[in-house]
Nucleic acid binder design. Structure first.
Lengths: 151, 151
DNA sequence: CTGTATGCAAATCCTTTGCATGCCT
DNA sequence: AGGCATGCAAAGGATTTGCATACAG
């Protein structure tokens, strides 16, 4: 189901920063590592709630810690709620967001391209932490409705 | 203070879509056109409130209409609130967001670069509406704190 | 033991909405 | 006149927080 190595890796990260490895955190972590797509905090909470007794607050708090540790990445595609995805063992990528159906696809940039983006930041004396590149538009299935349906 | 031509342009756009050109909308519009940097809905509301009697609801409603008309662009850099900027007469650009002080700088991509991004979307049968490219990191002044201060 | 972590509910922040009234066209 | 726009306050949705209790190290 999940990669034990990844779990150990995160466990080490947690302890390294002085966080305790509690049973609630383990349950949350395992669930996150088992997901390979984007999810919201609420979705995660409800998935866990089915089987375990974990509180919403702990889910939110843990997500924030994991983002801080760099285990999870957080996105805001403007829907009023954050989307998360774990990045352990996931190649770096960007997103195409369909304004019609909300579907999110991923794509990669070739190294050359990426180097250039970093070069731009460097020229501006900026230390890059992360690059978020999101293309909004309409997917194949939603092209018809393209004319930006008046909200 | 502001470019009358731009105001007329928006006025036309509003009427073209069946919206009325009211005095509240004119005040909001003039203020927005006078700003040349990002602002939140609340900031805009308080700027207007100093001199006029405009309600928060109208400010929010008007912003949404303007986004819809393509007069204003909306960003979500993950601070829990939306940032707006008017794009009439503003060349297309992207952002560098400092995780230290929150400062936002702008940068442009050369055409070649931009063409390639669109090509990627096209290959995935995606109709591009807009491209958001944001580089998060630490600006010159905040480089010291770079190690991502534990929130 | 000692200090975090957890759960719960209440609080917060931003944004949207319902409804009665006001104002463009 | 007729309908969209406005104001107000209340509602809504996502996330955070205070506090008493439970648990990892």
């Amino acid at each position: 189901m999940i990669d034990k190595k990844e779990l150990e890796e995160v466990k080490k990260l947690l302890k390294g920063k002085g966080y305790k490895y509690t049973s609630a955190r383990e349950k949350i972590l395992k669930k996150i590592l088992s997901l390979h797509s984007h999810f919201t905090a609420e979705e995660l909470f409800y998935m866990l709630k089915k089987r375990y007794k974990v509180s919403r607050a702990t889910v939110y708090r843990t997500l924030n810690i994991l983002v801080d540790l760099g285990v999870v990445r957080e996105y805001d595609f403007g829907k009023g709620k954050k989307l998360f995805e774990h990045i352990i063992g996931h190649k770096h990528h960007y997103h195409l967001i369909c304004l019609g159906c909300g579907k999110i696809e991923e794509f990669k940039l070739d190294d050359e391209h990426e180097r250039r983006l970093r070069a731009i930041a460097n020229k501006l004396e900026f230390n890059v932490d992360s690059i978020v590149l999101s293309i909004y538009g309409f997917c194949k299935d939603c092209r018809g409705k393209s004319s930006k349906a008046k909200s």
